Simulated scan of single mutants.
Amino acid sequence: MSIVPSGPAAVPSTVAGAGVGPLLRGWREQRRVSQLELALRADSSARHISFIETGRSRPSEEMVLRLSEHLDVPVRERNALLLAAGYAPRYAETPFGDPSMEALREGMERLLQGYEPYPALVVDARYDVLAANRGIAMLLEGVPDRLLVPPLNAMRLTLHPEGLAPRIRNLRAWRDHLLAQMDRQIALRRSEPLRALYEEVAAFPVPDRDVAPDDEPLVPSAHFALPLRIEHEGRVLSFFSSISTFNTPMDVTVAELAIETFLPADPATGKYLHSLHA
């Protein structure tokens, strides 16, 4: 497994100099929550919420954090809201390679190694790969070196026509899943770098339809989730994926980390991976 540095931190999408009221209103409208509903959640009044949004009342630091919590505002943007309200940022943004993150990095390394022979990786908010195990390295065999120059990007590696895309049997279905996932993240984070990545990978060529032999259904009826079906050395491997994040993070970097793991979707895939590991 390897640890690779990510690129520069994403710039908060909240416009510097904008008042906190309009910004909070924007988050409330995006979440489709009425002033009354937000007031009930935050133990306030619709009148007070209205005054905050119109600038007639300056919210306390505690109120900004409480409203951010009930509007599910990302940690990075909570800092921006605090600044707009005239308060200091509450959440640090520690670089992933900082010495203070050593315990976190070591814990992730043990987790990824313990998951072998199954693939697993850690990505940041832009899907740049920060760590990966040997299962991921196995899937990347044959990918051109120029696509493997750090920082590696999981979305670009997967959907690029010279990356994993030619080996993914259900590319259209898997691509639709990944683009929908990115679209949800863009709506949540309002991230311009993520939007740029979305537009880049969405423009990659894609076949008119997924093709598979008659005896190899793309999505077997027994599957309860969309599998990733990918070729490796003449075999078709099938995986389910899951994503884990940290509960109640107190650091922007940690809040934006995600651990993606791939579990064999059929006995043949599991048996093959264990044979390679042995």
Results as ranks from 00 to 15, higher is better:
176 D>Y: 01
249 P>I: 09
105 R>G: 07
168 I>R: 08
84 A>C: 14
250 M>H: 11
14 T>P: 00
210 D>G: 04
223 H>D: 05
221 S>N: 02
67 L>W: 10
100 S>V: 13
65 L>E: 07
230 I>F: 02
101 M>C: 06
264 P>D: 05
115 Y>C: 00
39 A>S: 13
4 V>F: 11
257 L>W: 10
269 T>W: 03
248 T>A: 12
231 E>M: 02
100 S>L: 13
247 N>W: 05
40 L>M: 07
250 M>T: 14
120 A>S: 11
76 R>G: 02
31 R>N: 03
48 H>Q: 11
122 V>Y: 04
212 A>D: 04
243 I>P: 00
148 L>A: 05
70 H>R: 10
265 A>G: 14
180 A>Q: 12
58 R>W: 04
203 A>K: 01
113 Q>W: 07
48 H>M: 10
199 E>G: 00
67 L>K: 03
184 R>A: 12
277 H>I: 00
181 Q>I: 00
136 I>F: 12
272 Y>W: 12
93 E>Y: 06
59 P>V: 02
131 A>T: 02
171 L>F: 08
45 S>C: 07
187 A>W: 12
264 P>M: 01
17 G>W: 15
12 P>V: 15
47 R>F: 11
215 D>M: 09
86 G>N: 09
213 P>H: 15
159 L>P: 06
156 R>A: 13
94 T>K: 08
207 P>L: 06
113 Q>L: 09
78 R>H: 14
79 N>F: 11
102 E>H: 08
212 A>K: 03
50 S>R: 15
245 T>V: 14
193 P>L: 14
215 D>R: 10
210 D>Y: 09
110 R>N: 06
91 Y>L: 07
151 P>H: 11
242 S>K: 01
183 D>Y: 03
7 G>W: 13
162 E>A: 12
221 S>C: 03
18 A>P: 00
83 L>C: 05
257 L>D: 07
171 L>K: 01
172 R>V: 11
204 F>V: 05
220 P>K: 12
153 N>S: 11
247 N>P: 00
211 V>D: 14
205 P>G: 05
